[in-house]
Structure formats: C-alpha cells, structure tokens
Design a binder for these strands. Structure first.
Lengths: 355, 355
DNA sequence: CTGAAAGCGCTAACAA
DNA sequence: TTGTTAGCGCTTTCAG
C-alpha cells in the first residue's frame, strides 16, 4: 500500500495474468491483442478486448515500461535562477511542448535544477533511465552540456540554435528579429539606440545583439559602449539596471531602447515611469518575444513576436520523431518572427492600434 | 534501442547484478547497502558504495519502481479550457508544488485533459499506475471527481476547499479576502459596486461572491442583479464582457468594480481604457490573487494577495505526508490573504505606492 | 549480517 | 495464429 491512511479494502486491480486465465488464451496473446498486433485473429482480439473492458483492465504502466525499456517521460530543462518556470515565455513554450507530447502518451518531467548541478542532473536523469528524451533550452556559446549529451544514447532537442553542428534544434529568427526591431527604430528617426542585454554567454543574446548592431551599422552608426545596459532577462533586473542607467550620464542623448526580451522591457517601462520619462515621446522602447503581457501593459509594447507556442509544438514533434527512430526532415529549424508595432515606439495618435 | 539514429556503440550502463558479482556480495546485500539499510555492516556498505561510485552505477528507476510498486510521479490537474497552464496563477502554483515534490524525488505530470474527459483521465492515471498521488484544483460545488476518487486507494489533495468533508485541501481565505476587497471600496465611499464573476459552479467563485455580498450588506446595500458581470476567469472573456457591460445601461451609476481574479481585472482595465473611463477616478477596480502583472499594469492594480507560491508548497507537503503514510496535523488548511492597495482604487496623489 | 529465490506485471524471442 | 519461456533490474521475504 502506498499509504496507510488509504489502505481501503478494494479489489486488487486486475492484471494481464488473470485476463489470460479468464479468456483461455496465453499472456502473450492477450498482450498482442491489446497492443493491436496484426498477428492475432480479429475475433480473438475482439474477445480479449471485450473481456478487458468488462473487467476494466488497465495495463500497468511501470511494468510495461520496464519490459519495453522505456519510460514515456521527457525531461524539460528550463533556465536556471534567477529565472523560473514562472517566466511567461517558458510557460507558453511548456504548454506547446506538453500538448504535443501528451497526445503521444508522453509526460513531461520538469526538474528544478539548481544552478550548479545542471550537468549532474542531466546525467542522473539519463543514467537512472528516468527519461526517454530531453528538451534543453538556452544553448550557450560554450556549452558543456552538449559534449556530455553526445556521450549518451538518448535523443534530445534544443530550443535555440547551437554552435555545435549535428545537434537538433528549433529556434526563432533571432538575428533577423532584432534587426527588424532596431531597424524599425531607425526608420522612426532614432540613431542613439541603447540596448538591454540578456545573460551574456547565451547564443540567443548574441544573435539578438548582432541583429541590433547590424541595423545600426547599416545607417553608419557604431554602437557605443555606454549604450549597453547589462541585465539578466528578468523584469526586476532590468528595472534596477535601467533606473541606474537613467541616473547616470550614460543615458544622455539616448532616444530609444531595444530590449532583448519583453520581460525586461516591462521592467524598463516601470523604470522610465519612475524617472518620469514618457514613452515613446522621450524614449521609445521595443521588446522581444511577444509574451501576452506586452499587449496589455501601458503603453502597449512594440515587440518581435515569436511563435512561442509553435516553438514548443515543433520542438516536441522533432523529439517525437527521434523517439520513433525516424530521421526528421530537417535537423535545424528556424521559425520566422514578426514585428508587432504598438504604442511604445509610435505615439498613439499615429499608431492605429487599440489599447 | 530507443532510437536508431542514436544507437551509438556505448558500454551498457552497469546493473546491480554486475555490481554484486564485482563486489563478491549478493544482489540483496548490494541493494540494501545502496538503500542504507542498517542491517548491512558499515564496512560492507562503504565497500559497495565505493564500488558503485567507481563504476558510476545508477539504479534503474523503472525497475526499482516496479519492485516497489510506486512511480514517484504526482499528477497535477489544472483547469480546463479556456484557461490553460499559461494562467499566471497556476504557473506560480505549479512552481511551488514542483519545488517541494522534486526535492523529495517526485516529478510532476501535467496532463492536458480535454474538458469532457477529466473524470476518465483521472481514472486512467490511477489504474494504469502512472501516478502515486494527485493534486486537483478548483473544486466545484457539485464535484463528481471526489466521489470517484474516494473509490480509489490513492492520496490526493485539493487546491481549494470542498463541500465534502474528509477531503484534504489547502485554500486561501477567499470569503474574507473578497470581503476585505469590497470593504476597502466601501470605505472609499463607493456603494454601487459591480462584480466580475468567475466560472459559476466553482467553490472559489461562490466564496468570493459571498465575501463581496457581506461587505455590501454590512452597510445596508443589497446587490442588484445588473451589478454582476458574468465572465470566466480569463482576460479575454472579461475584456469582452466588460466592454459589453459598459455599453449597456447596466453600468449606469456604478463607481467601482470588484473582480474575482486579477487576470479578469486586467481585461477590465483594457475595457475601461477603450471606453475612455479613468481608473480609479471614474471607476475604481480591485482584483484578486496577486499575480505579478498586477504590480506593473497601469494603473497598478489593487488586489487581494494570495500566497500563491506557498499554496503550492503547502499542497505539495500535505501530499508528501500522505504518501509517507503519515497523517497530516490538519486535514484542511486556510492560508490568510492580504489586501494590497495600489493605484486602481486610490488616486495616485493619495496613494503612496510607487509605479 | 548476508544469501537464495521468488516475484513486480508486462513484452518479445523462438517455437509450434 | 498462438503458446512457451525467458527475461527487464530491482526489492524483499525467508533462511541461515
């Protein structure tokens, strides 16, 4: 009994053994019938299935998994502190992944990995046979996880492009998206455009910075050192960093900000309000990701919309293919992004958008 | 092999059998040693553990679970469409639950249950031995799930109070919280206070409505029929419902709104903006839950703060106790809530809060 | 303190 | 088309 306070006196759930006895067939045939093995005669299968239904039989998932050498569980490793599963981007992503996998009978395991033990946690998940596959996020420029994973015989897919070749990944078009965002500001006449960066070392951060720089270079502007507001992809982090930046000389002359994600852009919005800067009149602001909150903060946030949910679905189905032993048509997939212009970059009267 | 493209030629992971052979002890002793059974001699245990470390041995979780008749997986059933795992409240709750359980070696399984198949999904999870315990949310006034669960010998805990006695649950003080929120509006001089309701049939909705009505009655105000804006706990739903309501005669004379959750309050905020009503000058607004967004929407949202994360932790630890066969000190727990006054109810100049 | 042996409930060769 | 027979890798009596 799992638990004393629950040891009700109930009939044991019926097992395949009993079902075999009852039906007069062998365990093997019962197993085949229930798994729709074409070798068993249609009539037999029907008979067995009816009996199973009658007895309300359910296969014991753990036993079946042991015999099949699988778990039907996928591990999803999401970013480490200070970010959490409560980051809206990852929630939506998780939702997409979960939908796809659950429909194929897989469940998601979301370990809480402490910052320093990620490597060890991965190894443990794999070696203890807790998962059939892994989804990893936020590849880093120098990413130890990949070398380690390549030692293992387990399929895995990254959310985000990797430096290493031969890795399956799905990503949004970060460089192009950041370019579009910055270019949008340039077209509005801005030249002195600051940037709020995410965690350094992440490939996504690098790609977005590259897009930002390309848009500036294109019009002959070189990014200045003090245009960079270093932050960590969190709202709190950006709120503080932007406040400090506004109080310093670094912010002089700046007329626009590109934020590497929406969460930080929302923090920036708060900082700008505190310091009495009007958005977009004093400083225009563009975010990245397209989380839901971007559409209802005030002013509404111009952003680069990622197909977050679809990223989740795509990652999920790539992994499913690998699990089935298929070779996905594409090893790497880049999904297009779309600039959504709202009030934080274009004053309301011009912008047709509704709040 | 799980997957052809991954059938690398790697050494099979070492099993307990080999470990036994290597150490010269039997499988039984090895198992005991690794599980810290006090019966094995200290020296032996050390020897075996060292060997295990040397060979980088990991117990096979599935095999161990089969023998132990457990899964170390907890099912978490969250609300059905139109709400999703992406609801900020549930994300934070999930985070709390996950933290507690993961530390004790449990993982969370979050099935995507289609609206009509919830009952069936629960039964399946249990009968297929996929989970050791369940966490359920949003008990309903007439809740079929409970009768069904009582047939099963599996521990479960609800987030939210139930009508049925003998059920383990953890809840915030909904009635008192709603009372405090409404009373706050009353104290500000409001008398015609509308309410945005969540899904009918949910106990939480009922409790919050009761608190709202009590605060009104206390000052001799009887709730009018047209003060009720029926919605569904979603932002989109509330946005539309409030727009319609504002366009109708029902809204005449109303000076304040109590929303049964923050997500809908944010929708209401959008609706009020669209219809050019100032908040709080024309209409004051109070939400419920205390999701993060409440602190950064404009105006910032007065709300009843639930200890969301703590609710998750508490539910998790109640369940853990049940799983260990212990009897929790309290079968039902009500956590206190706190009114957080922000700009949506009290004009900025009066309210000391910072944006 | 340790070992032998019997499962846990299902799947999968291999035979028939 | 079906049955027999071994497992999957670990835990757990029951003996010693």
């Amino acid at each position: 009994m799992v638990c004393h306070s629950f040891e009700a006196v109930m009939m044991m759930p019926i097992t395949m053994d009993k079902l075999a006895k009852q039906s007069g067939y062998s365990k093997a045939t019962v197993s085949r019938a229930l798994n729709d093995d074409p070798r068993v005669k249609k009539a037999t299968r029907q008979l067995i299935k009816d009996l199973a239904a009658k007895y309300n039989y359910r296969p014991h998932a753990v036993a079946s998994n042991l015999a099949r050498r699988q778990t039907r569980i996928i591990g999803l490793l999401i970013p480490r502190a200070p970010r959490t599963v409560a980051d809206p981007f990852f929630l939506e992503f998780l939702h997409g992944v979960n939908g796809t996998l659950f429909n194929s009978g897989y469940s998601l395991l979301v370990p809480q990995v402490s910052p320093d033990h990620e490597q060890q946690a991965i190894e443990q998940l794999i070696h203890e046979h807790r998962v059939d596959g892994l989804i990893l996020t936020e590849p880093r420029i120098k990413d130890d996880r990949i070398a380690a994973l390549q030692q293992e015989s387990i399929p895995y897919v990254f959310l985000g492009s990797t430096v290493e070749p031969d890795v399956f990944w799905v990503d949004g078009a970060n460089e192009a998206g950041a370019y579009a965002a910055t270019h949008h500001l340039v077209e509005l006449g801005h030249r002195q455009i600051a940037v709020i960066t995410g965690e350094p070392g992440l490939i996504s951060t690098k790609n977005r910075m590259n897009g930002y720089r390309r848009a500036l270079k294109e019009v002959g502007v070189e990014q200045e050192r003090h245009w960079t507001i270093q932050s960590d992809y969190t709202r709190e982090g950006a709120l503080e960093a932007v406040c400090r930046w506004l109080d310093s000389r670094d912010s002089q002359g700046i007329t626009a900000i590109f934020s590497c994600n929406d969460t930080m852009a929302i923090g920036a919005l708060q900082a700008l309000k505190r310091r009495q800067r009007r958005v977009p009149e004093d400083i225009a602001l563009v975010g990245f990701d397209g989380i839901e909150a971007a559409s209802y903060v005030d002013p509404t946030l111009t952003t680069v919309q990622q197909p977050i949910f679809k990223l989740g679905r795509t990652v999920g189905s790539q992994l499913l293919q690998l699990l089935r032993g298929e070779v996905p048509a594409e090893q790497q997939m880049i999904l297009p992004l779309e600039l959504v212009v709202r009030d934080s970059s274009v004053p309301r009267k011009i912008n047709a958008n509704e709040g």
